[in-house]
Simulated scan of single mutants.
Amino acid sequence: MGQDGTDIGFAAFNGWFHELTGVHMTIYIITDWLGLVPLFICMLFGGIGFVQLVKRRSLFKVDYDIIF
């Protein structure tokens, strides 16, 4: 299943599941777009942290949860 017919990780399981379910482009497109949600959330936290940094003028005054 893997490169040069080797078994690497879950290659055999992934191949079996792919043969079982086939290809569904609608599900692929939905999961592809849903993968962008965490990136937007990270950008939101970064923006909030940046605004706090500018307003409070010190990195130590930015909320610890946002820095973490």
Rank of each mutant, 00 (worst) to 15 (best):
Q3H: 04
F68A: 01
L20R: 06
F45V: 02
I27M: 00
I48C: 04
D4K: 12
G22Q: 04
Y64W: 13
M1L: 13
H18N: 09
F50A: 08
Q52A: 03
L36P: 03
T26E: 11
L20E: 07
F50K: 09
I48H: 05
L34M: 13
D4F: 15
Y28I: 09
G15Y: 13
I48V: 15
Q3K: 07
L44G: 11
M43K: 09
G9C: 10
W33I: 07
V51F: 03
I8L: 08
G9L: 14
N14P: 06
G2T: 05
D32V: 03
S58F: 00
K61I: 00
G46K: 06
Y64Q: 12
L53Y: 08
H18P: 01
I41F: 10
Y64R: 12
H18E: 09
L20W: 05
I8R: 07
M1P: 07
I48T: 11
D32F: 05
G47V: 12
W16D: 14
F17L: 13
G2C: 02
G5T: 10
N14S: 15
M1D: 11
I41M: 10
I66M: 08
R56S: 03
T26F: 11
F60E: 00
E19C: 06
G35M: 02
F17S: 12
D7I: 14
T26L: 11
T26C: 09
M43G: 14
H18I: 07
D65L: 11
G49T: 01
Y64A: 12
I30S: 00
Y64L: 12
V51Q: 03
H24F: 05
W33H: 02
M43E: 11
V37W: 07
D32S: 10
D63Q: 09
V51K: 00
G15M: 13
F10S: 15
S58Q: 04
T31L: 01
E19N: 14
I8Y: 07
C42Y: 13
D63W: 09
R56V: 04
H18L: 11
F68Q: 02
N14M: 15
H18Y: 09
G5E: 11
F45P: 01
D4T: 12
D7R: 09
D65C: 05
L20V: 05
S58K: 00
I27S: 03
K55H: 02
G2I: 00
K55W: 01
N14K: 15
V51E: 04
I29T: 02
M1K: 08
F50G: 09
A11E: 14
R57G: 06
M1N: 09
F45S: 03
M25W: 08
T26H: 10
F60T: 01
Q52P: 06
T31D: 04
L39T: 12
V37N: 03
D4L: 14
Y64V: 12
G35P: 05
F68M: 07
